[in-house]
């Protein structure tokens, strides 16, 4: 028996919004410690890694490890039927071929149940090596989304350049060039407004606008985003998911011919 109950069901709705444009289907690996999902996008350019710890759920039971292959378009349709303040429970029998979503209104007066067929997905799990990153940049997630959106007008790539002074995002194309510099902030009233750069060595890497913009669909999950970069390795874009876990996107850099 697997059962995971989340009073803050809106988090699960936001997680779905954060992955559904990138992935058509994915396996949810449910274990005693929580739920893990790892999947590449169709073009194998990026990797999504989702971690939801059991401690973050209001009730969590997983008697045996189960892998639930889900069509994310279908799952998204179902989660759209949940209100933002609904309590969401996911449950499945051991070796079942369906998963059930239960949505309870806060006053328990409305209870909806949706059963979805599971899929057999033959997905390779990739090993993500432990990496010491040269630059770790924390910035407001809304600011990052805005920068990615604004620079997308100029070209297909965004250059992210991190030095001890701060971080620079730039793009170039037919209409001209764009440069946005963010300096490390001094003291801020709210921690989530801070721009913090932890740099060992300066790094400049180029990434696809299209993918960065898809990652920013996770913006509603967290007021801050963390970018980790080292030369010639994938960028990590991480959003915390409340107290429950995180979503990380890995994106291979673009390289000059």
């Amino acid at each position: 028996m697997f059962e995971a109950r989340l009073v803050q069901g809106s988090l699960l709705k936001k997680v779905m919004e954060a992955i559904k444009d990138l992935l058509n289907e994915a396996s949810f690996d449910c274990a005693h410690s929580g739920i893990l999902l790892q999947a590449m996008d169709n073009s194998h350019v990026s990797l999504v890694s989702l971690n939801l710890r059991k401690e973050g759920f209001d009730k969590y039971r997983c008697d045996r490890n189960i892998v639930m292959g889900m069509n994310l378009t279908s799952m998204s349709k179902i989660l759209k039927c949940a209100s933002n303040d609904d309590i969401i429970t996911m449950k499945a029998q051991d070796s079942a071929d369906t998963v059930t979503f239960v949505f309870e209104s806060p006053n328990q007066e409305k209870v909806s149940e949706y059963e979805m067929k599971l899929m057999n997905l033959d997905q390779d799990q990739l090993g993500i090596p432990e990496t010491e990153y040269c630059c770790i940049i924390k910035l407001p997630s809304g600011e990052f989304a805005r920068i990615c959106r604004d620079l997308s007008q100029f070209g297909e790539s965004i250059v992210i350049s991190c030095t001890k002074e701060g971080v620079k995002f730039s793009a170039a194309g037919d209409i001209g060039t764009a440069n946005i510099k963010l300096a490390q902030t001094g003291t801020v009233d709210k921690e989530e407004d801070a721009v913090i750069v932890d740099m060992q060595e300066p790094v400049t890497l180029t990434f696809s606008c299209k993918y960065l913009n898809m990652f920013t669909k996770a913006t509603p999950l967290s007021p801050q985003v963390c970018l980790s970069m080292s030369p010639d390795v994938p960028l990590v874009v991480e959003y915390k998911i409340g107290e429950i876990g995180h979503i990380r996107y890995y994106l291979a850099p673009r390289i000059g011919d």
């Binding site: 194998h44 990797l47 990739l126 696809s208 390795v233 994938p234 673009r254 011919d257």
Partner: peptide
């Protein structure tokens, strides 16, 4: 001209 590397050239199947 930039080319895009696949994520699988960095991360290998377990």
């Amino acid at each position: 001209i930039m080319s895009q590397k696949s994520i699988t050239s960095f991360f290998k199947p377990n």
